[in-house]
Amino acid sequence: MRKMFISLILPVSVIIIWTILTTFTGLIPSYFLPSPSEVLQSFETLLMNGQLVQDTSLTLMRVVLGLTVSALVGIPLGILMGWSNAVKDFSSLMVGIIRPIPPIAWIPFAILWFGVGLESAIFIIFVGSVFPILINTLDGVKRVDKVLLESAYTLGASNSQVLLKVAVPASLPSVVTGLKVGVGVGLMCTVAAEMIGSSSGLGYLIFTSTSMLDTGSAIVGMLTIGVIGLCADYLFSRIEKEVSW
């Protein structure tokens, strides 16, 4: 209760100051920064005409799809790289070179290869979120307590059983952390991709409304992304707690 109160102080103060600056004193003109009531109005309009729901669900779908692809590639690859030094040596240079490239830099190629649409958005999200998932998984497998692995061997487990029954569950917390980071990056990538290579989604909403000086709608889009990120973070933190061993 107390914690909730403390965490609310800052956002509420920001809204109050924002209201004072825009509505009551008029120090900031509305095309520069819309007042909270204008944002609320835009919110209502976007909600009533269904655009907000549509764009939000489109963005969410892209994030979920992109993240699924990342997880399907990143988790197994991370496990293998963490388990086998041969696999790690084989792939580490390649990973090391591709990883630092910002996902946004891939946008032109994504459009070239996949056109404007779902595929290229998924590609961008994949490029952005696969590495945090991969690296965290790899790290998790590498850092599994040696005594657990050795216990399993002395209890008669084979190599593959030790991998599947010990290394994988033991690294689950790191996998979840990787997914949590991946969601954040994925969300950023989606919006960036939508701004440039798409005609729908929250990124598109923000981009088009600002260009039409509808700053209220842009802020609604931004806040929606913020709320999605917050929820995803909360969800994964809960899962993290669940699997913290």
Partner: peptide, 19 residues
């Protein structure tokens, strides 16, 4: 030449699988 179920080992550290 390798660990075996015939030679059980109890470690000094706690070694139960926490999951």
């Amino acid at each position: 030449s390798c660990p075996s179920r015939e030679r059980g080992y109890v470690f000094q550290q706690y070694s139960l699988f926490p999951w």
